[in-house]
Amino acid sequence: LTAREYLTFVGELYGLKRSDVDYKAEKLMALLGLEKAYDSRIATFSKGMKQKVLLISSMLHDPDILFLDEPLSGLDANSVMVVKEIFASLAARGKTIFYSSHIMDVVEKISSRIVLIDGGDIVADGSFAELKEKGREGTLEDIFNQLTGFDKYRDIAGEFVAVMQEDSPHD
C-alpha cells in the first residue's frame, strides 16, 4: 500500500470519513517531513519513515489512550524531539500513553509513571523521583540494574571487545 492508502484504511477502521482522514493524514505527513512520500509505497520507505507512518496511524483518530512499543525506534534525532514533544502535549491534554521501551534515558525523561519489569515481574512502580526516594541512586538504568542485580555489563563488554581484538587460534 501507499501511505495514503494505508492511512485511509486505518482511519476508516476508526470510523473517520475518507475525506477527513485524507485531510488529516496529508497534513500530518507533511509535518513529519513526508509530504513527498504520501503516494509512495510504504515498502520503499526507510525504517524511520515507516515508523512515522505508524505513529500517524496510531494518532490519526485522536485516541484517549495510546499503546506504543519502542515508538522512537529508527527516528532521526530531530524527529525524536518532535515526537517526544507530541507525547508531552498529548499527556498535558489528559491523554494516557503506555510507552514500552528498553531505552531507559528516554523513559526517565518523558514518563510521569514508570513500571520496571524483570522476567515478567514488576520490580518498581512510580515516578522517577519516587524511585530515587526509595534509596536508589543514579539514572533509571542504574536503578534498574540495582533492582535486578545485573552488574556484569562492564565485564561482558570488556570481554566482547577483547575477543574482537584477538587473533584466531586457527591462523
Rank of each mutant, 00 (worst) to 15 (best):
V53N: 05
L54I: 09
L55N: 14
S57Q: 09
L60C: 10
H61K: 11
D62Q: 13
P63Y: 02
D64W: 09
D64R: 12
I65E: 12
I65F: 11
L66D: 08
L66I: 10
F67D: 09
F67T: 02
L68C: 12
D69M: 12
P71I: 05
P71G: 12
G74F: 09
L75I: 04
L75D: 04
D76F: 00
A77V: 13
A77S: 12
N78M: 11
N78S: 14
S79I: 02
S79G: 12
V80K: 00
V80Q: 06
V82A: 10
V82H: 01
V83F: 11
V83R: 05
A88C: 03
S89L: 14
L90V: 07
A92I: 02
R93Q: 15
R93I: 01
R93T: 01
R93V: 01
R93N: 10
K95W: 00
K95H: 04
I97M: 05
F98Y: 15
F98A: 14
Y99M: 12
Y99V: 08
Y99K: 07
Y99D: 15
S100M: 09
S100Y: 13
S100W: 08
S101L: 14
H102Y: 14
H102V: 10
I103K: 15
I103R: 14
M104D: 06
M104P: 02
D105F: 14
V106D: 11
V107A: 11
V107N: 06
E108N: 09
K109W: 09
I110R: 07
S111I: 10
S112N: 13
S112D: 09
R113M: 09
I114T: 01
V115K: 10
V115A: 15
V115P: 11
V115S: 11
V115Y: 00
L116A: 02
L116D: 02
G119D: 01
G119F: 05
G119R: 03
G120E: 06
D121N: 13
D121T: 09
I122D: 01
V123N: 00
A124W: 08
A124Q: 00
A124C: 10
D125L: 04
S127P: 00
A129T: 11
A129Y: 08
L131P: 03
K132P: 03
E133I: 08
K134E: 15
R136C: 10
R136D: 02
E137M: 08
E137V: 05
E141V: 01
I143H: 02
I143N: 03
I143V: 06
N145Y: 12
N145K: 13
N145M: 14
G149M: 12
G149I: 13
D151N: 15
D151H: 13
K152C: 12
K152F: 12
R154H: 05
R154C: 04
